[in-house]
């Protein structure tokens, strides 16, 4: 049995690489955060926002509406700088609670600059409706292959339109 275990160890040591990498050919190496990944991580953490609605509902205020919150995912994966982009709640304490919770969100460390993200908290009768997408501000990549700055006049002259 010892020999068998040794043989298994040899298989795993060489087949999986000495750093324990098990990534398949198609997988990303998690150097950066993708939008679907950010959304999935948001959905995992969404229960923490439900207390804001529960509080509001318990206070006898049945709410229907949407609060669009923007925040930044720093390179260490922690959310920061949350602010209300738009609100239809009419309840300041609810909005403040959502901001407090948004600033506690954690994603994962990544190699990009801090990412600006927007998420609409949609609720009906004090029940939050998970939103099927998250809005990630994309970095514009316009003129490529030339060492030229992001100059609108230059873009107009070269790209036309």
């Amino acid at each position: 049995m010892t020999l068998l275990l040794l043989a298994f160890e040899l298989v795993f040591a060489q087949g999986l690489g000495t750093r324990g990498s098990v990534a398949t050919d198609a997988e990303e190496l998690e150097l950066y955060l993708s939008t679907p990944e950010i959304h999935a991580m948001m959905m995992e953490q969404i229960p923490r926002f439900e207390q804001c609605y529960a509080y509001s509902s318990a206070a006898g205020r049945v709410t229907v509406g949407e609060v669009f919150v923007n925040f930044t995912i720093a390179s260490d994966g922690k959310a920061q700088g949350a602010y209300i982009h738009a609100t239809k709640s009419g309840l300041e304490d609810l909005d403040a609670c959502l901001l407090d919770q948004a600033n506690t969100l954690e994603f994962r460390a990544h190699d990009e600059e801090p990412l600006e993200v927007g998420y609409p908290f949609v609720f009906m009768d004090a029940v939050m409706q998970p939103y099927p997408m998250i809005f990630v501000k994309e970095r514009p990549i316009e003129l490529l292959w030339l060492r030229l700055p992001a100059d609108p006049a230059l873009h107009q002259a070269l790209l036309g339109g």
Binding site: L29, Y32, D111, R139, I141, E142, L143
Partner: peptide, 16 residues
């Protein structure tokens, strides 16, 4: 090169 889009464009100029 996977992830090269994170290097490309002004002001990074990774493609240059």
């Amino acid at each position: 090169l996977r992830g090269a889009e994170h290097l490309a464009g002004a002001p990074r100029y990774g493609e240059v």
